[in-house]
C-alpha cells in the first residue's frame, strides 16, 4: 500500500510510533495504539521495523583508522606530572643563586669600598696615625681654653 494512500488511522498510528521512538509523550492513548497494532499487519510491521532500525542505529559504529592517535599525541599541549616538582626546584635554585650573590658581595666587593673600622685601642696603619695627630693637637692638662677662662 503506498504511504500516501494509507488510511488516516494508520497515518496517526505511524506518527505515534515516531513519537514513541523519540521518547516523546504519546498524544494517541496507548490502548488505541496497541489495539491498532494488533489489528493492522502493515502498521505492526512498521512498528517492529522502526524499533529495529532505531536499535541498529544506536549500536552502529564504524572502525576508525588506526593511525589517528599519533597525530593527536603530537598536538597535545605538554602536561607533566613533575611540573610542580620542577617549579619548586627552580625556585630553590633561584634562591640559592641569590644567596650566593649576596655572599659574594659581602665577602669580595663590600670590604674594599667601606671605610675601615676605627678601633679605640689603636691599630696599625692609618687609624694609628690619625689618633697620634689628634693627640698632638690636644692642649696639655691644666691649660684652659678661652671659654673655660670666661
Amino acid at each position: 500500500m503506498p504511504e500516501t494512500s494509507l488510511p488516516q488511522a494508520c497515518i496517526r498510528i505511524r506518527e505515534a510510533v515516531a513519537e514513541l521512538s523519540r521518547g516523546d509523550s504519546l498524544v494517541t492513548p496507548p490502548e488505541v495504539l496497541r489495539a491498532h497494532l494488533e489489528a493492522c499487519e502493515s502498521c505492526s510491521r512498521f512498528w517492529l521495523d522502526m524499533r529495529q532500525i532505531s536499535l541498529s542505529l544506536d549500536d552502529f559504529l564504524i572502525t576508525a583508522p588506526s593511525e589517528l592517535y599519533p597525530n593527536v599525541r603530537r598536538s597535545l599541549p605538554r602536561r607533566s606530572k613533575t611540573a610542580g616538582v620542577r617549579l619548586v626546584l627552580a625556585f630553590a635554585l633561584l634562591t640559592l643563586a641569590m644567596a650566593l650573590m649576596a655572599w659574594s658581595w659581602k665577602t669580595f666587593i663590600a670590604p674594599s669600598t667601606d671605610m675601615p673600622p676605627v678601633t679605640p685601642g689603636g691599630a696599625p696603619g692609618d687609624s694609628t696615625d690619625k689618633a697620634d695627630k689628634l693627640a698632638s693637637n690636644t692642649p696639655p692638662a691644666g691649660t684652659c681654653t678661652t671659654k673655660q677662662a670666661e
Binding site: P2, E15, S21, D24, R45, F46, D49, Q52, I53, L57
Partner: peptide, 25 residues
C-alpha cells in the same frame, strides 16, 4: 528536527532491503 528525524528513519526503512512492505514505498 522531529519531522526530519521521522522522515529519515522512514527513508532508511524504505532503503533497507530487510524491512518494510515494499509496496509501502
Amino acid at each position: 528536527v522531529k519531522s526530519r528525524l521521522g522522515r529519515g528513519r522512514e527513508a532508511l526503512r524504505r532503503k533497507l532491503p530487510m524491512f518494510g512492505d515494499k509496496e509501502d514505498a
